[in-house]
């Protein structure tokens, strides 16, 4: 169709088996001068950032610093908010996701999102995971079963729920719900996973499980996670970006940023002078 440019997914991404690093270039996603405004109010000053494949990038900063806003831009979730204006470019597979002709739905399938509050649909566990694939493809029962099982195994939930796949997703515990949501996202096979404070509503044990999952997923996905918790950023991420007052202050390898921050503001934040 004329106005529909779809984001082409490279053949290797679709054909290589999971686990061995699906991309060879060092750029999965790149933002260029990305800025956000709600009506008149600027929420994020223009910033540039590149995300490498098979890495975890943590976005940290105090509340209201723009990190969640930034994350939600990456798969255009803020298109659903009235009077939100996004400027700049988001390069994904050589195409600008913010260009007028680019297809939001296609982009969101390649760049999945996990939310702060676990938000399973009021459907059965099985239907939750099968939701995305069912919408996007015509699948046989067996294919669907296979996708559901694989996705649930991937998040370590399958053995816990395999006998009650028909049970409502809302009946699970908070940690299980969040893993179910991750499985639901994985079922549509995204390349990039955006996570918006995915553990802030969870207990410590579930948090630990989800953190392990993030590291594990980073073997074949690009993971970008917003977190309040600096220890979490240190534990799970390869790179960290620090946001402050709607501005990207600095970004670098996690170890470096935490031990030798270049910016004074980063240093102050990390040492707990403000939060």
């Amino acid at each position: 169709m004329m106005a529909e440019m779809t984001v082409e997914r490279p053949v290797d991404a679709a054909t290589t088996a999971a686990g061995d690093g699906r991309r060879t270039t060092d750029e999965a996603l790149r933002c260029e001068g990305l800025s956000v405004a709600y009506g008149e109010k600027q929420a994020l000053a223009p910033c540039d950032m590149t995300f490498a494949p098979s890495t975890v990038t943590a976005l940290i900063g105090p509340s209201g610093c723009g990190k969640s806003t930034f994350l939600r831009c990456l798969n255009l979730m803020n298109r659903e908010i009235a009077n939100c204006h996004v400027g700049g470019h988001i390069w994904f597979h050589g195409q600008d996701a913010l260009a007028p002709g680019c297809d939001v739905y296609d982009l969101r399938r390649c760049i999945g999102m996990v939310f702060q509050q676990p938000n399973p649909f009021p459907l059965s566990i099985y239907d939750n995971v099968a939701y995305g694939p069912r919408r996007h493809r015509r699948l046989s029962r067996a294919q669907l079963d296979e996708i559901v099982e694989r996705s649930l195994r991937r998040v370590g939930l399958f053995d816990e729920v395999k006998d009650e796949l028909k049970k409502s997703g809302l009946a699970l515990s908070g940690g299980q719900q969040q893993r179910l949501c991750i499985a639901r996202t994985l079922a549509v096979d995204p390349e990039v996973l955006l996570m918006d404070e995915p553990t802030s509503a969870l207990d410590p044990i579930s948090t630990k499980m989800v953190e392990g999952l993030m590291r594990d997923l980073a073997r074949d996905h690009t993971v970008i996670v917003v977190t309040h918790n600096m220890q979490q950023a240190e534990r799970v991420s390869n790179r960290t970006a620090f946001f402050y007052l709607g501005e990207l202050v600095e970004v670098g390898p996690t170890k470096e940023l935490f031990s030798h921050p270049r910016e004074r503001r980063t240093q102050d934040y990390l040492s707990g002078r403000f939060s």
Binding site: E4, T6, Y105, D106, R135, R137, R138
Partner: peptide, 8 residues
């Protein structure tokens, strides 16, 4: 591809 176009 067809499904996506149909959905849209």
């Amino acid at each position: 591809g067809l499904r996506l176009r149909g959905a849209r």
